[in-house]
């Protein structure tokens, strides 16, 4: 039985257990958000995806990412009140991540350009907004190489047991999902440095460019069932090879 409800007076359908933000996006409603991906569990950290949900006579503000849809609810994705609280939360986040382009842009949409708060005192990973996307992505991929440490004003992103995890494969997903791109990751021709360790690259058998870290390749071979030589050649060389083979057919 599909769940039926309304977003901004438009009737929509969803499967039981779906998150409101996911359903809204699928139906073309745009709700700003900084800490949600459909593929990781929602935790409602950034508090930007606020909406108003009316259920019977009662109506309340809630974050949409971690709200499981219910029959008959009426959702509005915008109101002066919603905007006011989104703006304040963005101001808080901008003060935490002043050099993040993404946050600056979103904050500007809500009329926030210069936060009234100074630099945050405890922030060992500058510009991190503690959205935990990195931790959740890494966990979802099965690597469990990141964790949160502490709570309250001392909360931070860190390594389990405070040392680089053996299970980190250097895939860089954490750096990719980070909305503020604040996770330091540096690649050379031979190595990727991330989270306090260096991972050896598999090098392209044609041109020597880095393809994927050896550990990530090994993990992929073990879990994804593609043969080893899928990971030998870099993307550009594969594309050139493809073009040559096309040419050979045509001419």
């Amino acid at each position: 039985m599909p769940i039926r409800f309304k977003i901004n007076d438009v009737a929509v359908e969803a499967k039981p257990g779906e998150g409101l933000l996911d359903v809204a996006r699928r139906n073309g409603f745009s709700i700003p958000s900084l800490c949600h991906l459909e593929s990781v569990p929602a935790i409602g950290a950034c508090r930007i995806c606020l909406v108003e949900v009316r259920r019977g006579r009662r109506s309340k503000l809630t974050t949409s990412c971690n709200y499981e849809v219910l029959d008959g609810i009426e959702v509005s994705t915008d109101s002066p009140e919603i905007r006011r609280h989104r703006a304040m939360n963005l101001e808080l986040l901008l003060a935490r991540a002043p050099s993040s382009e993404a946050i600056r842009k979103l904050a500007a949409q809500y009329g926030v350009s210069q936060p009234r708060f100074g630099p945050i005192k405890y922030n060992p990973l500058p510009n991190c907004i503690l959205c935990e996307l990195c931790v959740r992505a890494c966990t979802e991929l099965g690597h469990h190489a990141l964790t949160t440490v502490g709570r309250g004003d001392r909360k931070r992103i860190g390594l389990p047991f405070n040392k680089p995890a053996d299970t980190c494969v250097g895939c860089g997903a954490c750096a990719s999902v980070c909305p503020t791109h604040c996770i330091p990751m540096t690649d050379t021709l031979t190595k990727r440095a991330i989270w306090g360790q260096k991972h050896d690259f598999v090098r392209c058998s044609e041109c020597g460019a880095p393809v994927i870290t050896k550990k990530h390749r090994d993990h992929a071979i073990a879990t994804k069932g593609l043969p080893e030589d899928y990971y030998d050649v870099c993307q550009s060389c594969k594309q050139i090879a493809t073009s040559q083979r096309f040419a050979a057919i045509v001419w």
Binding site: G44, R47, N89, L92, R151, G152, R154
Partner: peptide, 13 residues
């Protein structure tokens, strides 16, 4: 602020 779990921007920050 010390005892907040630190999840929410609004509560923590």
């Amino acid at each position: 602020k010390f005892e907040s779990c630190g999840n929410c921007t609004s509560c923590r920050d």
